[in-house]
């Protein structure tokens, strides 16, 4: 089976700064991958490329077998048009560290907006699906609240419902608990755990919660200075790392208990 995410030799620089320096990564459909690594190592950049918010400078990036930025036309590879880009982009969804809810719309309308404008669902159907997603994240009673009146945890739940409602094949989570008060983190992680255990979606999760990464993912990728240093089963990464750099990072965060 083809991997749903395939990166080969991906490079990305911002000006002089080489952020990604040759990334190879294949993720089969349904897998949950945690991405860990020090600040500035390029984790968010990787997710932004997967979300097609930005394009690689070099290398191959494919979602479900298709490159978002190029398309086949008259037997050769051409720069993709808007339609092709959006067709590929539609397979991916993302939840951000700072929620990025639309402040001028209620929770319900945040979720409904893309259902109406992108999937072009009829209004009643869009509303039904949005309400159902909001109750799935425990916010049935907050449908009419505006983001300014929600707690951080509630905002992040709306953002998750909003992304899930589009039924993407791949979901990306970029440190979605980092901006939350500590007591709200557990609930969001539990929600992630519940999603990943269904195995219907491919999930790529950037996180600083090592215990969560260990218990909830099929695979952990350790990132440092724009390259994948180590990629393996959670047990292996956390307890028998092959690389010194991985061990130092894990120890620094978990404490050298293992």
């Amino acid at each position: 089976m083809n991997p749903i995410i395939r990166l080969r030799g991906v490079h990305k620089a911002y000006g002089e700064l080489a952020v990604l320096r040759g990334i190879d990564l294949e993720v089969p459909a349904g897998q949950t991958v945690s991405v860990i690594g020090p600040s500035g190592s390029g984790k968010s950049t990787l997710l932004r490329l997967l979300m097609t918010l930005d394009r690689p400078d070099q290398g191959v990036l494919e979602i479900d077998g298709e490159s978002p930025w190029t398309m086949e036309k008259n037997g050769s590879q051409q720069p993709a048009d808007e339609r092709h880009l959006r067709q590929v982009r539609g397979k991916v969804g993302m939840v951000f560290q700072h929620f990025n809810l639309f402040p001028h719309m209620s929770a319900l309308h945040n979720v409904m907006e893309a259902l109406l404008r992108v999937l072009r669902l009829p209004r009643t159907e869009a509303e039904a699906r949005a309400r159902e997603r909001l109750s799935a994240v425990g916010l049935a009673d907050k449908a009419d609240a505006y983001p300014a009146h929600l707690s951080g945890g509630q905002k992040q739940r709306v953002a998750i419902a909003r992304a899930l409602a589009m039924q993407p094949k791949v979901m990306l989570f970029d440190e979605i608990t980092s901006a939350l008060d500590p007591e709200l983190v557990g609930g969001i992680l539990a929600l992630l755990h519940e999603m990943s255990s269904k195995r219907t979606m491919t999930m790529v999760i950037v996180t600083h919660h090592m215990r969560f990464a260990e218990s909830c993912s099929d695979r952990v990728v350790f990132f440092d200075e724009g390259v994948i240093v180590e990629d393996g089963a959670p047990k292996a990464i956390f307890h028998e790392p092959r690389h010194e750099r991985t061990r130092r990072f894990v120890d620094a965060i978990l404490g050298p208990e293992a």
Partner: peptide
């Protein structure tokens, strides 16, 4: 970015 991630035109 949120609008793009939702695939809005």
């Amino acid at each position: 970015e949120a609008a793009s991630a939702l695939n809005l035109s």
